[in-house]
Design a protein around this nucleic acid. Structure first.
Length: 1043
RNA sequence: GGGCGAGUGGCGGAAUGGCAGACGCUGGGGACUUAAAAUCCCCUCCGGUGAAAACUGGGUGCGGGUUCAAUUCCCGCCUCGCCCACCA
C-alpha cells in the first residue's frame, strides 16, 4: 500500500494494530474455548458443531498460502456457527511424525525432535497471525509421548483382536450388519469350548467336526499361538516390499518413481520379501464401501475410495494340471489319489490345480492358455526340465523390477512357457501354462486363465507368442463398424479380406460388393450401410467369430455367448451338457458359475484390489511398536500401564545405507539403540521391535484426541466422545482422498467394533479445497520459467528479461524452482490478516484450483478500509458523523436484510466468494450515503465478523459494545424485506431480448403478460405479427412467440 | 490406456434451463486538490450505425441435438487438470 505520511489521519484503518489487539484479547479471555459436556459451565441445550481442518505437517519451509485456504473457510464457518448458537469445537494440532520430518532432520543434521519442535513453533506463530478461532488449549503434536501412548494402545487393541466375519449385529439405525472385530480372548473362550477346530495349516473353522480338522485342545501351545496370530487384526507377515539399500529403508509404492528408483536420491529399489507388521484392513472392505454411501462427501472422492477398494465380482475356476489329472467319462480323476472327489472338497484344497479368478467366467471356453505370475509358488514345481533355464532367468529379472516398474511397461508383453499344461475344465483341452509379469502376484490368486478373444492383454500376448485365439462373445455391430473405422490405413486390405472371406460363404453377393469397392472414397460408410441393410453386418460378425486374430483386437464388451465347444464339431470329452451359446453375458456368467460349482470346479467370488496395510517402516521418527520379541520367536504385547514406549533418544538417528544391493537387509536405526532394545522380564530376554509405525498412524485418530486432549487415562472420555462425534465438517486437500481418509475410517471402525467410540464413521461431511497455484511463463520451446525472469510489456504481453523473447503466461504449481511461492507472512505484514482471509476466500470457489495474484489483494484491503470508514472518521478517529440513531429507511433495511440472507445461505454452502461479493454490494450502497443508521450498520458488522473478525471486533467495540461479538446472535432477516417491491423483467420476442419492463414483484403471470404486451417497444416489435404463444416465468422474464 | 473434473471479457470469477459477464482486479474518464497520493463518481465482452442518447449483429472451447428458451441438459470431438494405471 501507499506510504501514508504518519499522523495525518489519526483515524485510519491500522490493520496490524487492530489485529494484534484482538488476538491478544481473544487469548486472554479464552474467547474460543470449547466446552465439554462434563464441564460445569457447559450449556448442553446448545447443539454441537465439530469443524475440523486436516492438521498440517510442520515442514521446514513453513506455512505457505495454500494452507490457510481451508483454514480460513473453516474459521468463517466456525465463527458463524457460534453466532448461530452452536457449541463449536474447532481445534488445531500437528502431524509431526514421519518421513519428511526425518528427511529434513537428516538434511540439516539436526535431531528430528528439535527440528519438529522448531517447525511447530513457527507454524503456531503463523497460524495465530490469521486470527483463527481455534481452541488452542486443545493443541497437540502426534509425536508427543502423551499422544502416541494411545496410538500404541490402539495398535495393541488391534493386535488383541480378531475379525469375526460371521458375527451378526444391529447398528444404530436398526440395520442388521455382519462381521465385526472382537477381542481375541472371546475367540480363545470359544475355542476352548470345543466348538471350533483348526486345520493342519492352523486356519480356524467354526465346525470342529469337519473332516481333517483338529480340536483346539489337541493343539500344542505353539500351534495355538500360531493359530491365534493368524487371526489378529495386527499381525506379522512376510510380504514383498520396496527395499532401497542406499537409503537403508523400505519405501512405500508412493515413494518409488516410475523407473523403479527412490523418489529421494533416485537410488535403485528392489522387491524383496520382508517380515512386516500388517493391519487387516481387507476385512473391512464391504463395510468401508457400504458405509461410504450415506456420507456427505464429494462424489469424486467417494468414487476414488471405491476404485481404490476395487471391488469386482466374478468366479474362481479350477484348472487341473495335465500331469496329475485325467478325465474319465466326464469325471476328474487324480492320478495318484483317485479317491479325491472335487465336488466334496473346498476349492482351495484341491491338489495339483491352478485356481484363477476371473470377472468373465462366461468366457472360460475361450481360455486357450494360462499365465501365472513369476513369483507364483507353483512355478518351481511345474516347470519342465527343458524350460527351467529360461524360466529361472525370467523370474530373476522380474524380481529385480518393482511392481510399479512392471505395471508401467504397457507396450510390450514378455513371458516364458513353463512346459506344463493344464486342462480347461469346460472344454477338456490341454492348454499351455506360461509365466509373464503382466500377471501380478498381489491380486487374485496370481494366476489367470487367458482368454485372448475377450481380453486386450491376453490378446496382445497371444499375438506375440502365437497362441490360439477363440472368440466366445459375439461382438456388437457397432464394435465391428468401429474396428473397420479404427483400421483406416489398412482399410482396403481389411475390407478386402473380410469380403473375400464372406464371399466364399455367400458368393451371390459378389457383384454388389465389387461395385462398393470400386467407389474407393467413402467405402466404409457406404459399404457398411449397404451391409447393414441386407444383413451382411452379421456376416462380418460371423467372420470375426471364426477369425478373431484377423480383426487385430479382442472384443472385451458384453454380448451374446458363442463358440461353446459343441460348435466346433469336436466332441467335448467333459461337458457335453453345457452350452452357453446365445446367452447374454450376464446370463452366461450365472449359468457357467452354477455349472462349475456343481462340478466342484469353481464358485462365484468377490475380489478386491485393496490389500492389507503394510504398517512398519525402518525409520527412526515414528511410533515404536508396543511389543516384545522373545528369543524363541514369540511376540508378546506390552501391558497398557507400560505405555508409552518412548522412542530412545539417539544422536545417530539416520537410516543405514547399504552397499550390497541385492542381498542386504534393512538395519533400522532403532537397532543401534542397544540399551533401549533389550528387556529382561521374568528372567527371559526380549527385544523391542526395530520398526516404527508409518506417518499415517497418528492422523488416524487425532480428531478423537481433540475432544479430550489432556486425558492421561483414556484416549478420550467416552461421554465427551458421544457428545462431539462425529466431525460435522472436515475440510482438507483432495490429496488425502484415499490413504488418510480410508485408513482413518478403518481405524475408527475397529474402535467402534471394540466399543471405544459410539459411531461407525468419523467424518460426516467432507469438503476438499482446491490448490493455490502460481503464475509462470512458457516460451516457444515449451520451457517454463518463473515470474522473476519475465518482464511485462503490455496488457497481455510478456517477454524474457534477458533475451526479449515473448512468453505466454500460464498457471503452474507454486514451487521453489520457479520462485513463484508466496509467503503469507509478507502479505499479512503489508495488508493484515483480515485482508488475507477475504482475499483467499474471494479468489473463486473454494473447491477449485486457482492462481494466486498479489495484484488483486489491494482490492480486498480497500474493502476493509471502506468498511472501516462506514463507522470511523479517518480525520478524527471518532465515530463517523454520518452515523445516526434514527430509525432506518426502507431502502437501507432492504439492503441489510438481503445481505444477511445471502451471506448466511452462502456460508452454509461454503460459497464464500459470492458472500464477499454481496458484502461488496452492500458497502457500495452504503459508501455514498451521508446518513448511516446504527440499526443497519451494527447488524452489518456482525454479518462481516466471520470474514474479517479483527476489524469487526474493533468496530463493534467502538460502537460501544464492551464484549467480544463472538457470541452475539447472528442477525435475523425479514423475508418481506429481502424481496424488492418492483422487479425488472426481460421481455423476449422469439427468444431475443427486446425490452425490459418494471412490474410489481407479486404480479401474477396474467398481469406480467399484459404489462409486457403493453410495453411500447414490444408493441412496436410486434407490429404486423400475430402472437402465437406467451411464456411467462414469474418475476424473471416473458417470451413472446410469434406465428 | 481407463476414470473423474474443468474450459465464460485483458485477468480471477458470477449466473446451473429463464435478461450472459454479478463482484473484484486491470485500463480509461471525471470530481476534489496548488499538485500528487488517498477518496468519491462514471465507463470498460467484441463488431456495426450514430455527435449523443440509442439502435443493431455476434458471443460462454469446437460440431450437432432437445427446448418457446441452453454457459446450464443430451451426443460426438478438441484442449487442460487431477486420480488410477497390465487389478484378470
Amino acid at each position: 500500500m501507499s506510504q501514508e505520511p504518519s499522523g495525518i489521519k489519526p483515524g485510519r484503518y491500522d490493520c496490524r494494530a487492530i489485529e494484534t489487539r484482538w488476538q491478544k484479547y481473544w487469548e486472554e479471555n479464552q474467547s474460543f474455548r470449547a466446552i465439554n459436556p462434563s464441564d460445569s459451565s457447559a450449556d448442553t441445550s446448545r447443539p454441537k458443531f465439530y469443524i475440523l481442518d486436516m492438521f498440517p505437517y510442520p515442514s521446514g519451509a513453513g506455512l505457505h498460502v495454500g494452507h490457510p485456504l481451508g483454514y480460513c473457510a473453516t474459521d468463517i464457518v466456525a465463527r458463524y456457527k457460534r453466532m448461530r448458537g452452536f457449541n463449536v469445537l474447532h481445534p488445531m494440532g500437528f502431524d509431526a511424525f514421519g518421513l519428511p520430518a526425518e528427511q529434513y532432520a537428516v538434511e540439516t543434521n539436526v535431531h528430528p525432535a528439535i527440528t519438529t519442535q522448531k517447525n511447530i513453533e513457527m507454524y503456531r506463530r503463523q497460524l495465530r497471525m490469521f486470527g483463527f478461532s481455534y481452541d488452542w488449549k486443545r493443541e497437540f503434536a502426534t509425536s508427543d509421548p502423551k499422544y502416541y501412548k494411545f496410538t500404541q494402545w490402539m495398535f495393541a487393541r488391534m493386535y488383541d483382536s480378531w475379525y469375526d466375519a460371521d458375527c451378526s449385529w444391529i447398528d444404530r439405525d436398526g440395520r442388521s450388519q455382519s462381521g465385526r472385530a472382537r477381542p481375541i480372548r472371546e475367540l480363545v473362550a470359544e475355542l476352548e469350548s470345543g466348538r471350533w477346530g483348526a486345520d493342519p495349516s492352523l486356519a480356524l473353522v467354526r465346525d470342529s467336526h469337519a473332516m481333517g480338522f483338529r480340536r483346539w485342545n489337541t493343539l500344542t501351545d505353539k500351534e495355538r499361538s500360531a493359530a491365534l496370530d493368524r487371526q489378529r487384526l495386527a499381525f506379522l507377515d512376510e510380504v514383498p516390499v520396496n527395499w532401497c539399500p542406499a537409503l537403508g529403508t523400505v519405501l512405500s509404492n508412493e515413494e518409488v518413481d516410475n523407473e523403479g528408483r527412490s523418489e529421494r536420491g533416485r537410488h535403485p529399489v528392489y522387491r524383496r520379501p520382508l517380515k512386516q507388521w500388517m493391519l487387516r484392513i481387507t476385512c473391512y472392505t464391504e463395510r468401508l464401501l457400504s458405509d461410504l454411501e450415506p456420507l456427505d462427501w464429494p462424489e469424486p472422492i467417494k468414487l476414488m475410495q471405491r476404485n481404490w477398494i476395487g471391488k469386482s465380482t466374478g468366479a474362481e475356476i479350477l484348472f487341473p494340471l495335465a500331469d496329475h489329472w485325467t478325465i474319465e467319462s466326464g469325471t476328474w480323476k487324480h492320478k495318484k489319489s483317485p479317491t479325491i472327489d472335487l465336488t466334496k472338497i473346498p476349492l482351495e484344497r484341491a491338489p495339483d490345480a491352478i485356481r484363477v479368478y476371473t470377472t468373465r467366467p462366461d468366457t472360460v471356453f475361450g481360455a486357450t492358455y494360462m499365465v501365472i505370475a513369476p513369483e507364483h509358488p507353483l512355478v518351481e514345481s511345474i516347470v519342465t526340465s527343458d524350460q527351467r533355464g529360461a524360466i529361472q532367468q525370467y523370474v530373476t529379472t522380474a524380481r529385480h523390477r518393482t511392481e510399479l516398474d512392471r505395471t508401467n511397461e504397457t507396450k510390450e508383453k514378455t513371458g516364458v512357457f513353463t512346459g506344463a499344461y493344464a486342462f480347461n475344465p469346460t472344454t477338456g483341452r490341454r492348454i499351455p501354462i506360461w509365466i509373464a509379469d503382466y500377471v501380478l502376484m498381489g491380486y487374485g490368486s496370481g494366476a489367470i486363465m487367458a482368454v485372448p478373444g475377450s481380453d486386450t492383454r491376453d490378446f496382445e500376448f497371444a499375438c506375440k507368442f502365437d497362441l490360439p485365439i477363440v472368440a466366445v462373445v459375439k461382438p456388437s455391430e457397432d464394435w465391428i463398424k468401429e474396428r473397420l473405422h479404427g483400421l483406416t490405413d489398412r482399410m482396403d486390405e481389411v475390407v478386402q479380406k473380410a469380403f473375400d472371406a464372406i464371399m466364399r460363404e455367400v458368393p451371390e453377393h459378389q457383384a454388389e460388393l465389387q461395385i462398393a469397392q470400386e467407389r474407393s472414397s467413402g467405402l466404409q460408410e457406404k459399404t457398411l450401410t449397404a451391409m447393414r441393410k441386407d444383413h451382411r453386418l452379421p456376416k462380418l460378425i460371423e467372420h470375426y467369430l471364426r477369425h478373431p486374430k484377423f480383426w487385430k483386437a479382442a472384443f472385451i464388451g458384453e454380448g451374446h455367448a458363442a463358440n461353446s465347444p459343441e460348435m466346433d464339431g469336436k466332441k467335448n470329452l467333459h461337458a457335453p451338457s453345457i452350452s452357453l451359446n446365445g446367452l447374454t453375458t450376464m446370463q452366461a456368467k450365472v449359468v457357467i458359475t452354477e455349472w462349475l460349482e456343481r462340478q466342484g470346479l469353481g464358485r462365484s467370488k468377490r475380489q478386491y484390489k485393496l490389500r492389507d496395510w503394510l504398517f512398519s517402516r525402518q525409520r527412526y521418527w515414528g511410533e515404536p511398536f508396543p511389543v516384545l520379541h522373545g528369543e524363541d520367536g514369540q511376540t508378546i504385547l506390552m501391558s497398557d500401564d507400560e505405555l508409552p514406549l518412548e522412542l530412545p533418544t539417539m544422536a545417530d538417528f539416520k537410516p543405514t545405507p547399504s552397499a550390497d544391493e541385492a542381498h542386504s537387509l534393512p538395519e533400522p536405526p532403532l537397532g543401534r539403540a542397544k540399551e533401549w532394545l533389550t528387556v529382561t522380564r521374568n528372567g527371559r530376554k526380549y527385544h523391542h521391535d526395530l520398526n516404527t509405525m508409518p506417518n499415517w498412524a497418528g492422523s488416524c485418530w487425532y480428531y478423537l484426541r481433540f475432544i479430550d486432549p489432556e486425558n492421561a487415562k483414556q484416549f478420550c472420555d467416552s461421554e465427551a466422545e458421544k457428545y462431539w462425534m462425529p466431525v460435522d465438517l472436515y475440510v482438507g486437500g483432495a490429496e488425502h482422498a484415499v490413504l488418510h481418509l480410508l485408513y482413518a475410517r478403518f481405524w475408527h471402525k475397529v474402535l467402534f467394533d471394540l466399543g471405544y467410540v459410539s459411531g461407525p464413521e468419523p467424518f460426516m461431511k467432507l469438503f476438499n479445497q482446491g490448490k493455490i497455484q502460481g503464475f509462470a511463463f512458457r516460451d516457444s520451446r515449451g520451457n517454463v520459467v518463473g515470474p522473476d525472469a519475465v518482464e511485462q510489456r503490455g496488457e497481455d504481453d510478456f517477454v524474457l528479461k534477458n533475451s526479449g523473447e515473448p512468453v505466454t503466461r500460464i498457471v503452474a504449481k507454486m514451487s521453489k524452482s520457479l520462485k513463484n511461492v508466496v509467503n503469507p507472512d509478507e502479505i499479512i505484514a503489508e495488508y493484515g490478516a483480515d485482508t488475507f482471509r477475504i482475499y483467499e476466500m474471494y479468489m473463486g470457489p473454494l473447491e477449485t484450483d486457482k492462481p494466486w495474484n498479489t495484484r488483486d489483494v489491494p482490492g480486498l484491503f480497500k474493502l476493509c478500509q471502506r468498511i472501516w470508514r462506514l463507522v470511523v472518521s479517518e480525520q478524527t478517529g471518532e465515530l463517523s458523523p454520518a452515523l445516526c440513531n434514527d430509525p432506518p429507511d426502507e431502502e437501507n433495511l432492504r439492503a441489510l436484510h438481503k445481505l444477511i440472507q445471502k451471506v448466511g445461505e452462502d456460508i452454509e454452502q461454503l460459497k464464500l466468494n459470492t458472500a464477499i461479493a454481496a458484502i461488496f454490494d452492500f458497502v457500495n450502497i452504503m459508501t455514498p450515503k451521508d446518513r448511516r443508521f446504527r440499526a443497519v450498520i451494527e447488524p452489518f458488522i456482525l454479518t462481516v465478523a466471520p470474514f474479517t473478525p479483527h476489524l469487526a471486533e474493533e468496530l463493534w467495540n467502538r460502537l460501544g459494545h464492551k464484549k467480544t461479538l463472538t457470541y452475539e446472535p447472528w442477525p435475523k432477516f425479514d423475508p418481506k424485506l429481502t424481496r424488492d417491491e418492483q422487479v425488472e423483467v426481460g421481455v423476449q420476442i422469439g427468444g431475443k431480448l427486446r425490452a425490459r419492463i418494471l412490474i410489481p414483484a407479486d404480479a401474477d403471470e396474467k398481469a406480467t403478460e399484459t404489462a409486457a404486451l403493453a410495453d411500447p417497444k414490444v408493441m412496436e416489435a410486434l407490429a404486423g405479427k400475430t402472437v402465437r404463444k406467451v411464456i411467462v416465468v414469474k418475476g424473471r422474464l416473458v417470451n413472446i412467440i410469434t406465428g
